[in-house]
């Protein structure tokens, strides 16, 4: 089991990452808090060491995505996803940042992780394939389709 100091360090370092993934998947604050507790509890109880900081970060991303998916699989959660307003930690409505974020969040679920991991976290298709446990070619396909959908929605900017 990891020390309390280690837990606090991980919360400071990865809270934003966990929060962003929660936003990609979830639509209310209570679920986000559940995921925070689940992810950091798993971290504290994990005894195996991480090979590197990248390994640790990838672990957090994978565990958070899986926790979100598990939560959404629950019958009750699937039936009740109120579109609560995000609190002050998200871009203000009307801003370009908000417009982009809304466009990403409006994508079908299977594209959102890929967009987040590639465009924000900077992972390659091969790395995304490892994190999401998907075939690399599938990741490429998802990236291409997501890119076209975002381009169409945002009507600007030449995608990579």
């Amino acid at each position: 089991m990891r020390s309390e100091e280690d837990a606090n360090r991980a919360i400071e370092k990865y809270a934003d990452t966990v929060r962003r993934i929660c936003m990609v998947h979830l639509k209310n604050e209570a679920d986000t808090e559940d995921i925070f507790q689940t992810v950091f509890l798993k971290y504290v109880l994990r005894s195996a060491p991480f090979e590197s900081e990248e390994h640790e970060k990838a672990w957090f991303i994978r565990v958070t995505i899986n926790a979100c998916k598990d939560l959404l699989k629950s019958f009750f959660r699937a039936q009740m996803v109120p579109l609560d307003d995000w609190d002050g930690t998200a871009p203000e409505p009307g801003t370009e940042q908000r417009e982009v974020l809304d466009a990403v969040l409006a994508l079908p679920p299977k594209y959102k992780d890929v967009v987040y991991l590639h465009y924000y976290e900077g992972y390659s298709a091969a790395e995304i394939g490892r994190i999401l446990q998907k075939n690399v070619n599938s990741v490429y396909t998802l990236m291409n389709r997501a890119r076209h959908m975002l381009k169409k929605t945002l009507k600007g900017g030449e995608p990579d």
Binding site: I11, R19, Q37, L41, A90, Y119, K151, P159, D160
Partner: peptide, 30 residues
């Protein structure tokens, strides 16, 4: 596109209260 998406996600942060509640949860549970 890359920059726009990065900027949009950059504006998202975990607020201090959420972090504090997580610390308290771990403190109590573990």
């Amino acid at each position: 596109m890359n920059d726009k998406i990065r900027d949009a996600f950059d504006a998202v942060h975990a607020d201090e209260a959420l972090k504090q509640r997580t610390r308290e949860y771990l403190g109590k549970t573990v």
